[in-house]
Simulated assay, not measured.
Amino acid sequence: MRVIIAAILILFAGPAFAADSCEAQIPSSLKVALAKAFPKFRPPLASDNLEEDIEFI
């Protein structure tokens, strides 16, 4: 049940995180798999890094 709830939250929270360049590159199917495998963690965000370490192409 927790996995289903996490998957639903990830799918509906997607637009809220869409501004992040890292999050936008992760397919939704991978997000669901990550949430299932690592329920206490979240996918990486660009804000996790220092600004000088981020290269935008």
Score class of each variant (00 low, 15 high):
R2P: 07
V3E: 15
I4Y: 10
I5P: 00
I5M: 14
A7G: 10
I8V: 11
I8Q: 08
L9C: 12
I10P: 00
F12W: 11
F12K: 05
A13P: 00
G14P: 00
G14Q: 06
P15L: 02
P15A: 02
P15Q: 03
A16V: 14
A16S: 05
F17R: 04
F17V: 04
A18V: 01
A18I: 04
A18T: 01
A18W: 12
A19F: 13
S21L: 08
C22D: 02
C22W: 03
C22K: 01
E23P: 00
E23M: 04
E23D: 08
Q25W: 00
P27C: 04
S29T: 08
L30P: 00
L30E: 08
K31T: 00
K31R: 10
A33I: 06
A33P: 01
A33T: 04
L34G: 01
L34V: 02
L34C: 02
A35F: 00
P39D: 07
P39I: 03
K40V: 09
K40T: 09
P43R: 02
P43F: 07
P44V: 11
A46Q: 13
S47E: 13
S47V: 13
S47G: 13
D48F: 14
N49R: 14
E51C: 06
E51T: 12
E52A: 11
D53N: 15
D53S: 12
D53A: 15
I54C: 07
E55R: 10
F56G: 10
F56L: 15
F56E: 15
